[in-house]
Design a protein around this nucleic acid. Sequence first.
DNA 1: GAATTGTGAGCGCTCACAATT
DNA 2: GAATTGTGAGCGCTCACAATT
Lengths: 333, 333
Amino acid sequence: MVISASTIEEVAARAGVSRSTVSRVVNGSPAVSEVARESVRRAIDDLNYVPNRAARALASRHSQAIALVVPEDTARFFGDPFFAAVVSGIQARLASTDYILNVILATGDPGDKTTGYLRSGSVDGAIIVSHHDNDTFIDRIAGAIPVVYGGRRVRVRDEDHVVDSDNVGGGRAATEHLLERGRRRIATITGPPSMRSSLDRLDGFRAVLDDAGLAPVAVEDGDFSEDGGAAAMRRILASGQEVDAVFAASDLMARGALRVLRDAGLAVPDDVAVVGFDDSMIAATTSPPLTTIRQPSRGQGERLVEILLDLLRGASPEHATVMPIELVVREST
Amino acid sequence: MVISASTIEEVAARAGVSRSTVSRVVNGSPAVSEVARESVRRAIDDLNYVPNRAARALASRHSQAIALVVPEDTARFFGDPFFAAVVSGIQARLASTDYILNVILATGDPGDKTTGYLRSGSVDGAIIVSHHDNDTFIDRIAGAIPVVYGGRRVRVRDEDHVVDSDNVGGGRAATEHLLERGRRRIATITGPPSMRSSLDRLDGFRAVLDDAGLAPVAVEDGDFSEDGGAAAMRRILASGQEVDAVFAASDLMARGALRVLRDAGLAVPDDVAVVGFDDSMIAATTSPPLTTIRQPSRGQGERLVEILLDLLRGASPEHATVMPIELVVREST
DNA sequence: GAATTGTGAGCGCTCACAATT
DNA sequence: GAATTGTGAGCGCTCACAATT
């Protein structure tokens, strides 16, 4: 049963006041008498009035909505608990504001429909996560509304507003930990090279091995997915090289690797030590529980919102925020 | 660099035509000369013009957006590959239309902000998935815009438009399969009782056992999550009862159960057979690969869109669509 | 008369300012 | 003069209809 919506004029008529007074009540202006406010409130209840958002946006030039743009494969976005944590941080920080969150899935090249939507005033700003090097449509969005990026872009630009984790530091910490455990034949499973976080974690990994005078046993792309991690692990084993440790650049890929190691009859950590990245919800429930690099995913979501809110109110937040990482030792190393 | 948007009047002036002609070109009307069309196109390009969606919505009374409303815990929504499949079906079916998808996370009681947004003309209709019995805000949405439900509500209402799987049939098929395998001491791990799909799958399970003159060894709530499934399996084992089979009402819960069984030193399927539900992406990669009930999750997403599109164009689609299920036998039974 | 184009009104709000108490 | 209220214009489109070729 869809009831047609009532308008501000109808509410005004019923309450015996003008359009303006209704608008003031709806928007919480203090410049309204108690009597008028009460009468408007009653009329709003009686008529089940909800302000028309398109009209409000047109007049005020603000939509009070922000978009979370996800240029990622749906299965990957949903499959990775890292995103769940970021999103819940975003939602939590937004709860106390008047902004509503609008999740826009922009798999592959989203085309003019999605790009146009984001440029058309439907949202006041956007948070873009899990972006890839070849996502050119992003520039068209950033040319129209304020944008904050979760993770630096592959081509880093100083004018971007970015909330990133210390991925290089995380790659370093994971690798140093493996060296401390006495491992010397270390492989890594990376994220896709189209993402800065993949490159940074790999850089940290390589730097530490370099300093130790070692070379990686293998560098395999696991595409940040569980199946990709499993496939990468299989390739590493199939190459016939000896391996005593693996740094997987996400917990999900690490879980895939653990599965393959178990199926191959290799013990973790006795034969092969494994370090993940994220410390997502799944890290504690793999078998064995996963040593990993914690990044504050939820906090990253909150920070993304804070930067965007600053931008929307015309402030000048810092361009690059780097969240600290931390090694969490469990039983896989 | 945010550039302020140009308007239809500016495009008209530059192209040397009226506002109306620009509108016709933008909206693909055939009643425009080639010359005018070309000149408008150039002006649009030059000015980087994108129609203001709020103005369009206000004038046309259509937003060309539909919402996917998810009254579900963020971690659960993201963690379950079933939703990923439904969402990708929705996106796929929507790709060929002018509608944009707006994912709205409505965890817990979403409050007036979200409800108001959905009632305010921001979207033309809504698809609601993973709804629970106590989600009262749903009625307020359904009173304002057309709504299609993914899954029947706990209180089934004939006037609702619903796309559902044959959950009772799925529960039956899973249980019959276990009986055929010679199992007699069968437990079930259910979804939350606030969801119709949980109740239906349990009904199918009970009916088949009843017909066979058997009683369930245990009925434990696993909350449709992997950890919930693991905890439920632990409770079943701790009860000390003999169990030779488990029907878990989702693949994710089944995976949790498999983990607990392995840790308890029980072999699957030799000691305990396990059937899941969904045939989601993870079913084939558990160890052992999971026997499960396939529901066409992606197809369900597509169908949800089709029903809603019918509603939006004023047609009268059928109220209840039931998607068929199918037993998929792998190695866990 | 058919094809193309433009005009006027209106969608439902906000916001500046004037008017009223 | 301060507190409260209302008026007019305008946000950027669409849509019916009239005007033009």
